[in-house]
């Protein structure tokens, strides 16, 4: 059993998914270490219990065993209360130290990313920058970045297992957490507080990149969206601005400034459509626009009446927004 547990747990470490045991940042790394401490202690105590149990099963089943009527209270108190108390005091102290470390956020000069949870996508802004994006945020490697969390509707929870434990988004309040990545990469995050129909598809991506890439990202966030280059894209833009899309979505610099759905100014470069519902490619994008309800049932974008002829243009335009 013990061996099985260890084997299984180790097997999972070498994954590459959003595993809390494969930390890439200080917050998660601390917790991963804490986990291994707790795991080994548990296994030791579990082994103790199993040994006693096995002992009883092996040696106390013979017909001739004499029943003893004593009350070994000392054994019960030492094994059931004394030893556990020592263990608990130790792990409590370690846990408190780690909690304090998690509370040790960045200084005032650090960048502040403003994340707002919506049913069921993430609005991302950066303090001091005008634009917005969705379901993806960038951070500079090796720096602590403040993340300020609000919700537009119900509770959500901001979780990037490889970087930082959760912080809930509480209606009517503002919460703060921070991210610190030690190595560059893309880390999957997901809403962890049940928030209704599409809680399953409320993922996001944290991209940790060198400082200059991060600065470039910040700059792009403040600028108008790319202008269409081809005719198809221009027709697509027309459609976008003139149809219902603009009522809900914004594309910077086009006059479309709806605030109900995600800002689409850089939608072409996103890692997914629908907060992790489907990959971001032409086919899926078309499917999403025509009827996102088949892709992500229950989400708040109604099926759109886009003439069949206009759809490819629209897709071309959206894909060009990088």
């Amino acid at each position: 059993m013990v061996a099985l547990g260890i084997g299984l747990a180790l097997a999972g470490c070498a994954g590459g998914g959003p595993s809390a045991l494969d930390p890439a940042g200080t917050g998660a790394a601390r917790v991963a270490n804490l986990w291994w401490l707790l795991f080994w202690i548990s296994m030791a105590v579990f082994a103790e219990v199993m040994v006693l149990l096995t002992w009883a099963l092996v040696f106390r089943r013979k017909q001739r065993v004499r029943v003893r009527h004593g009350q070994p209270l000392r054994f019960v108190i030492v094994a059931g209360a004394g030893i556990p108390l020592v263990i608990l005091v130790v792990i409590y102290a370690v846990g408190l130290r780690d909690l304090a470390a998690l509370g040790d956020g960045p200084g005032p000069e650090a960048p502040t990313i403003e994340v707002t949870g919506h049913k069921w996508w993430w609005e991302v802004r950066v303090q001091g920058v005008d634009g917005a994006t969705a379901n993806e945020l960038h951070i500079p490697v090796g720096e602590k970045v403040r993340v300020r969390l609000r919700t537009a509707d119900v509770l959500h929870s901001f979780w990037v297992p490889q970087l930082m434990p959760k912080t809930d988004l509480i209606a009517g309040e503002v919460r703060e957490t921070w991210l610190h990545a030690e190595r560059a990469g893309s880390y999957r995050g997901q809403c962890a507080e049940y928030c209704g129909t599409q809680h399953a598809h409320m993922a996001f991506l944290v991209v940790a990149e060198p400082r200059h890439d991060f600065d470039a990202w910040l700059a792009r966030l403040g600028e108008p969206a790319k202008q269409p280059q081809t005719d198809a894209q221009r027709r697509g833009q027309q459609t976008f601005v003139q149809s219902s899309c603009a009522g809900c979505h914004a594309v910077r610099g086009t006059g479309a400034n709806g605030r109900i759905g995600p800002d689409l100014s850089d939608v072409g470069s996103r890692w997914s459509i629908g907060a992790g519902a489907v990959p971001n490619d032409g086919g899926h994008l078309g499917g999403w626009i025509a009827n996102s309800q088949t892709v992500k049932p229950g989400n708040y974008m109604p099926p759109q009446q886009v003439a069949a002829g206009q759809l490819p243009d629209l897709i071309a335009y959206l894909q060009s927004l990088k």
Partner: peptide, 24 residues
């Protein structure tokens, strides 16, 4: 964390019972 102690007492009380009795 403290609340685990009473559970520990019970678990070990049962283990002791099994270690002193004759299991059927």
């Amino acid at each position: 964390t403290i609340i685990t102690i009473p559970s520990g007492i019970q678990i070990f009380a049962w283990l002791a019972t099994m270690l002193l009795g004759r299991l059927v």
